[in-house]
Amino acid sequence: MLTGVALPVAFALVAAAFALSFWRLLVGPSAPDRILALDTLYVNAIALLVLLGIQLSSALYFEAALLIALMGFIGTVALCKFLLRGDIIE
């Protein structure tokens, strides 16, 4: 049940989520829209890594997911600050 049905379906759904977010990243139309799409891509990447970890029964992917969560948050905050102030480090 788990490996037969649930995991492939979950992979397909997350891949579709990637495609939709990527479409928004390309289309825009504004800068905050693109940042939001990037942020969603980060979250989707975490989901994909967690699924891979379960599929391959390997706990190694957890570290990568944690790092992506950290970097994604910092990237989003830095980009938003750039939009708000026109500068990141004051």
């Binding site: 995991l7 979950a10 992979f11 997350v14 989520a17 990637f18 969603t40 989707n44 989901a47």
Partner: peptide, 12 residues
């Protein structure tokens, strides 16, 4: 897993 993937998909 299915619920999680579905919510991720709905978010996008």
């Amino acid at each position: 897993i299915l619920a999680g993937a579905l919510f991720t998909f709905i978010g996008s």
